[in-house]
């Protein structure tokens, strides 16, 4: 039992991290009022870019940086469409999914199915790693796991404790009031989507460079969609996103562990839990008062200042 728990807990951060990074990225976009459905495609592009760069002989950190840049680059047409031209965000986001998935397939074909050596666990002393239960969870992890948690804390502080965060949230809640207070609505949205895309790209790159150390088509496997759900589940709060990522990632991590025990588990039903939980949360919140919901008030809508 201890052995099982140790292994499960040890694998949990690896499952948690991409979900956390992607949902933090989305959280930035959505707090500024931009619904970015493109996350699944942007993650795929990040995963592919990371793998290609590592296979080309560059270091893992270069690969992660390249993935974030690729993610930002692919989001530029999306930003242009929804922020500057106020195109409807839902179809524009779906188009971004297609472009991201398509590019990752087209550009990553030569890199597919080639194992490589990616991110390594931080070199903690063996005695720590071998601690029962929490040893592997805490001390057999790579730097990105720690970084993701730090980013979550920074995001929470940045959004809720700085003037820039206040303005960014104002843009997503009530752009007319933000505009009246002198905030450049579109600039803040662009900054939010750039930061968001970078984090989403990093999340994707972590899947290939960090987790499986191989790139295959379709390896994102719905994690982008789960991240969209996770943001709702976390009610647009970065710290709650950590809890959500642990919960959703924990459920995901459980499946291979249970299978390793040779148990007959309803794998697919277990995988449904994040989705069903999120729908449940949405329903419960809708029954409550309006103030209980923290969905940004202007999410997904286009703000156009009435011309004077």
């Amino acid at each position: 039992m201890i052995e099982f728990l140790t292994a499960w807990l040890g694998s949990l951060p690896g499952f948690m991290t991409p979900l956390l990074l992607a949902s933090l990225g989305l959280l930035f976009c959505e707090r500024a009022g931009v619904l970015n459905l493109g996350v699944e495609g942007v993650m795929a592009l990040g995963a592919m870019t990371g793998a290609v760069v590592v296979l080309a002989g560059y270091g893992t950190w270069t690969a992660l940086a390249a993935a974030t840049l690729a993610a930002i680059a692919v989001s530029i047409p999306f930003m242009l469409a929804v922020i500057v031209f106020r195109a409807p965000q839902i179809p524009a986001g779906l188009a971004l999914v297609a472009i991201g998935l398509g590019l990752s397939e087209a550009l990553g074909r030569d890199a597919a199915h080639k194992p490589f050596s990616g991110l390594q666990a931080l070199p903690w002393p063996d005695t720590l790693v071998e601690l029962p239960l929490v040893g592997r969870m805490l001390f057999e992890q790579d730097a990105i796991v720690i970084l993701a948690l730090i980013i979550a804390v920074i995001a929470a502080r940045g959004l809720f404790r700085t003037p820039q965060g206040l303005r960014l949230r104002a843009v997503g809640e009530d752009p007319a009031t933000a505009d009246a207070a002198g905030v450049d609505v579109q600039l803040y949205q662009i900054v939010a989507v750039v930061i968001g895309s970078a984090l989403i790209g990093l999340a994707g790159a972590y899947l290939s460079v960090g987790g499986s150390q191989i790139w295959t088509e379709g390896m994102v496997a719905g994690r982008g969609w789960i991240s969209l759900a996770l943001v709702v589940f976390a009610q647009w709060m970065p710290i709650r996103a950590i809890l959500g990522a642990i919960l959703f990632g924990g459920a995901e991590a459980l499946i291979p562990r249970l299978q390793a025990l040779g148990l007959e588990v309803p794998v697919y039903f277990l995988s449904m839990t994040p989705y069903l939980l999120t729908i449940g949360v949405l329903l419960i919140l809708s029954l409550g008062t309006r103030t209980a919901q923290s969905e940004p008030g202007f999410l997904g809508r286009a703000y156009i200042r009435q011309d004077r």
Binding site: P163, L166, R167, R169, A170, E173, T177, A181
Partner: peptide, 13 residues
């Protein structure tokens, strides 16, 4: 006023 914000946040904004 931004409704979900506190009064202080609104003034700071």
């Amino acid at each position: 006023l931004v409704m979900p914000f506190t009064g202080r946040e609104n003034i700071r904004l």
